[in-house]
């Protein structure tokens, strides 16, 4: 059950997008998300759709694989659609009982659905084509200026990558402890919510203790290997902008310009 959890579901493939610098992808995703909230009207809709379709095509991630990620947000989409349909004032098309669906409501609901779905699809291109490690590396380098404001950027990204490394280990451990407690007669299934929550205690206490022990061991192992923070540290795989990153920046800027001008002109 717990093994099904996958974080940052990376989809390995050999595409230009996979090879891009994570910083480029982060920036591009950000610009795309902004463009989703900037566009207006049919022309803008066509532009963002084309943009998304081209990106998905270039990324070589199968389309159905991307759609799978949408399941989780379907409920949110449905709720926002319902609210927009019935609560937008304007010219009524259909009326039953006290509820009426308006033309404006229909339009709002439609665009909002598109925005939400494109938002998820667009950002999942980022997580599907970037390994968690590249992502933390990219964040570390992109946020480096914050170091001047005494934000411990290196430490945060180190913590993130260690957390990612230990997720499978802790999941396995949870499984083990669960089985051990079940063998001793623990009951995780029956009872109401309060009782279920209480039955988690014999699972969480040993898990926490072991996590702290692991953290202690790991800290010692890191110190033994001369870890002393980010200062004076070199990288095996330093991030370097290549030509394709420059091209991507130009393309994404052009795309953004198109979306903005479509909004201003039409």
């Amino acid at each position: 059950m717990l093994r099904d959890i996958t974080i940052g579901q990376y989809y390995p493939a050999d595409s230009v997008i996979h090879k891009l610098d994570p910083r480029t992808k982060l920036t591009a995703t950000l610009i795309y998300v902004v463009s989703l909230f900037v566009f207006r009207g049919m022309a803008g809709f066509v532009a963002v759709t084309l943009g998304l379709l081209i990106i998905i095509r270039v990324s070589k991630v199968p389309f159905f694989y991307m759609i799978k990620g949408l399941k989780a947000i379907m409920i949110i989409v449905v709720i926002t659609v319902i609210f927009n349909l019935f609560l937008t004032p304007g010219e009524a098309i259909v009326t039953f009982w006290k509820l009426k669906i308006t033309w404006e409501g229909l339009k709002n609901a439609g665009f909002l659905t598109v925005r939400l779905i494109y938002l998820i699809l667009g950002s999942s291109v980022l997580t599907l084509t970037t390994t968690p490690n590249q992502l933390t590396d990219g964040l570390e380098k992109a946020l480096k200026p914050l170091n001047k404001l005494h934000v411990p950027v290196h430490e945060i990204s180190m913590m993130m990558s260690i957390a990612l490394r230990f997720i499978p280990i802790l999941v396995e451990e949870t499984d083990k402890i669960m089985k051990a407690q079940l063998a001793r007669g623990a009951d995780f299934e029956s009872g109401n919510l309060v009782k279920k929550a209480k039955s988690m205690v014999p699972l969480l206490v040993p898990l926490f203790i072991s996590a702290f022990r692991r953290a202690n061991d790991l800290a010692m192992a890191m110190e033994a290997r001369c870890y002393h923070g980010g200062e004076g540290r070199t990288k095996m795989k330093p991030l370097k902008y290549k030509k394709r990153d420059g091209v991507t920046y130009v393309v994404i800027a052009a795309y953004f310009a198109v979306v903005v001008s479509l909004r201003l002109v039409l």
């Binding site: 968690p132 490690n133 990558s161 260690i162 990612l164 490394r165 280990i169 692991r214 061991d217 790991l218 192992a221 890191m222």
Partner: peptide, 9 residues
Amino acid sequence: NPDNQIIAS
């Protein structure tokens, strides 16, 4: 413990 001294993934 080999698990507790490997840092990267």
